[in-house]
Design a protein around this nucleic acid. Sequence first.
DNA 1: GTGAAAGCGCTAACAT
DNA 2: ATGTTAGCGCTTTCAC
Lengths: 365, 365
Amino acid sequence: MSKAATVYDVADRAGVSIATVSRVLRSPDAVRPVTRERVLDAVAALGYVPSGSARGLAERRTGVLGLYFPGFDAADEAPALDALSGEESPPFTVVQSGADDEDHAAMLFLDEVLRGAELEAWKQGFVLMVGVGRDDPDRATVRDMAGRVDGLMVLASSVPDEVLARLARRIPVVVLSGPPRGDHYDHVTVSNAEAMAELTRHVLAQVEDAPLAFLAGPTDSPDGAQRWEGFADAVAGAGRPVEEVRVVRGDFTRASGRRAAEELLRSGPPAALIAANDQMALGALDAFRTAGVRVPEDVLVTGFDGIEAAVLSQPPLTTIRQPMIELGRAAVQVLARRLEHPEAEPIMARLPVRILLRESSLRPS
Amino acid sequence: MSKAATVYDVADRAGVSIATVSRVLRSPDAVRPVTRERVLDAVAALGYVPSGSARGLAERRTGVLGLYFPGFDAADEAPALDALSGEESPPFTVVQSGADDEDHAAMLFLDEVLRGAELEAWKQGFVLMVGVGRDDPDRATVRDMAGRVDGLMVLASSVPDEVLARLARRIPVVVLSGPPRGDHYDHVTVSNAEAMAELTRHVLAQVEDAPLAFLAGPTDSPDGAQRWEGFADAVAGAGRPVEEVRVVRGDFTRASGRRAAEELLRSGPPAALIAANDQMALGALDAFRTAGVRVPEDVLVTGFDGIEAAVLSQPPLTTIRQPMIELGRAAVQVLARRLEHPEAEPIMARLPVRILLRESSLRPS
DNA sequence: GTGAAAGCGCTAACAT
DNA sequence: ATGTTAGCGCTTTCAC
């Protein structure tokens, strides 16, 4: 790290001009083989690595795509670790079978999207810049990123409209997931409402006219709203008045689902309970089990998200799974396309989801 | 995206010099409130976002940390997806319970390290740049990254020594995982050998003098070598000649573990089989089950890595789990420290691992 | 408190 | 085929 060699150093050492050095690196064929060799030797000898900043400035593009998240769910739980504190810690600890720190970090929404994005970015010859912006009232992080990348992918609802609009004046922005966001940005999302409608129809076909309940999410969640809409559409489409559906509300947590289900039970169980997410559905499953209400014999239950715990529950939970890896990939594709055609119409990609029919929604015949 | 405003545009509009604009953004207090407001108004009106390239060039630092991996294991399996192909695809597909595309993407080594790194980078005020370099003979990707970041984290064995040395001349490099790599770079790794030794002692205590077998990895794997060493140390330490251990070799795959175990069985099962990774251990479990050899009654089996499948196997597999999230975090910490003290001694952090004792290595008493 | 001007390291015309 | 030179957009002395 003596002092980072520059084009000038290389040029000097090779006895050529800086333009030639640049050429050797960018279009090697435009330079005579002997010269080229001399330059490459100098490059190697000096350990020259071009400055991305300088290159980016001159070229007016960076080759970097940004992916911005509102924040890690798991972040706050992380232990305060200090790897540099010294040698005092033992090289290992022994954990007995069954201890609960055997747990594996669950693959979060974010991890999967990131993986998809990284994969596709690699294919398209971009590098990915990842930013997380918790506790960031003035959105400094995302603005900072916006200055460094050729295009930005932003997870829906992580950035207020005004900020988004501002960033979009500098670089292409694609919004990931969530409901449409005006039609100024490219948007990659999933068919949540449609899938919820289909799932609802699947349930309706089994319960016919028996009473229905919906376990809703917080009122301010756009996702929750979309899911309700899909549900309501299907109900109305089946010729049933939406008003007669019993709606209980939770906050997407398992505990809230349990409470909501208990409330439901006080006036007798419905024939089916459609929940706005898996966590709440699992909570409801808990409550039903405690109350001696059988699923799926007495009541059908469905969730939404396709989290891992939903496969392992008793009974396994029917749910809808978003294609998160594909979401990340698609976002990069959209961005790459936009960079090539800046003036094209806004793109609106809608990815199919998978409805996973499992025991919790299949009434035994 | 009309044309990305610059400092000049802002300065013009606010009726000040570009120096003042810069000041407002960097040290707001150094400028009179009225002036500051005028500038901020202009910034807002123009949607000005500073260019990271220009800033990085002038400042000689980028605020970005790089994380480089050799490649995604899962990458090649990914379907060729084209999100832009149009509306033809249905909004959802229905999957019956038990179909095997219910599967969840497993959390890979990489995903966890990435998560830890991202978390810590955020804490330290850095943004993370992620690069993957499959099929990259001339290591263009990593060099490219090196030019854009203030410091680089490189997964062991993903980059040849010469390239590493070259990058290290430009920016601080920290090597992640794997065996020590000379003492020129900072290095964050885990106590694999020690943990393997301890695990071996745990097994030895149960089998006493009965015959032992080791299921080794490919000869060229540094990780495999470290694990063998830890094992051999413990065996020698127990006063048993290492030569009498039966060594069979696999390539870290489940199938190779199965074959190796079958080979072992031809000359009678050992009292314990220590495998160099989980996959092979699981393969061995398969083979033993097929042959009617009971685990742990007849033979004890252990793995290494702590992959998820190891908890779910029958019986659950004793293994050693690396703290991957912490690895990522520690790497960032080391890098941050290095950036502050460029001349400090190389740092060598060794993270503790967790030995997960499960049924496969616990002889019923 | 503010402005003028000199870089930061590179690319890309334009000359030769 | 190679060199000269003018930016790219920003930060930072150094004057005023």
